[in-house]
């Protein structure tokens, strides 16, 4: 089957659709940046975009190498601080959506960005939390974007950097947090979470995949409803904006 889009573009478009107009969105690196700009330039012109270091609503004209690149801050409406963005906006409870990526996630949407291996034995240290733990703890909902691979979607992850539904059921609420992950978007499927057990649950599978392709490449068994629709492919206009406006040099989607 031939498609006129690649899996990253579908993931960005699916991420963008999760954002409603007027929502406040905390954004991390990579694909979430593309998804957020895409939402802002299509159906959510009144959304507010936050970067942890103290940046609100930038309008970059060049792609950056990360949040520390002034290219990403260009034409911002506010340039301030961690305490301003992560404190008085996020911790205060004003962030509707947080976008997160990671090395590994488990069936409850707990995320690891800290290390791979055995934390008490031999391991490789990676990047750690940054603002990810703060966003996972205080946003009204989070959207996880990740490659679909059994080494990333694991039964047990090496380290819980950012909490999802912790050990399932009401364990997240018991730890003092509301919110939690609402979606996991991979390059094969979109998942939600079961309302009671909080286990990951297939919502839709991307065109060209079978349910076996999706479930067979995961380290745990997700909840699979009787009928699973295909994910809506990206629209022509979404693809044009991704390719021509947001990421013409393929720095995010490469």
């Amino acid at each position: 089957m031939d498609f006129d889009y690649n899996p990253s573009e579908l993931m960005a478009a699916a991420g963008a659709r999760e954002i409603k107009d007027r929502e406040v969105v905390a954004v991390g690196l990579g694909l979430p940046v593309v998804a957020s700009f895409l939402a802002k330039q299509t159906h959510a012109p009144n959304m507010t975009m936050l970067f942890e270091l103290g940046v609100i609503d930038p309008e970059p004209v060049h792609a950056g190498v990360g949040l520390a690149d002034p290219r990403v801050w260009h034409r911002a409406k506010v340039l301030s601080s961690f305490v301003d963005i992560l404190g008085s906006i996020l911790h205060k409870g004003r962030v509707d959506v947080g976008f997160l990526g990671g090395l590994e996630t488990d069936q409850y949407g707990n995320l690891n960005t800290t290390l791979v291996g055995d934390p008490r034995g031999k391991f490789r240290h990676m990047v750690g939390s940054g603002g990810a733990n703060d966003i996972a703890s205080s946003a009204k909902r989070t959207i996880i974007i990740m490659r679909h691979d059994a080494r990333k979607l694991k039964k047990t992850i090496s380290f819980v950097t950012s909490p999802g539904y912790v050990t399932g059921g009401d364990s997240r609420a018991k730890a003092g947090m509301s919110g939690g992950p609402s979606r996991v978007i991979t390059d094969k499927a979109i998942f939600g979470f079961h309302p009671e057990t909080k286990q990951m649950m297939v919502i839709s599978i991307h065109p060209g995949n079978t349910i076996e392709d999706v479930v067979g490449t995961m380290g745990f068994a997700p909840v699979v409803p009787k009928k699973v629709p295909f994910t809506e492919p990206p629209e022509k206009e979404q693809l044009r904006i991704i390719r021509e406006v947001i990421d013409p040099r393929k720095m995010y989607m490469g």
Partner: peptide, 21 residues
Amino acid sequence: YLAGSLGLPFMPIRSLQGSDL
């Protein structure tokens, strides 16, 4: 740092809960 800057004895926070951090 904020607690230190204000001369407060400690600062409550919602982050870190339920994590290995």
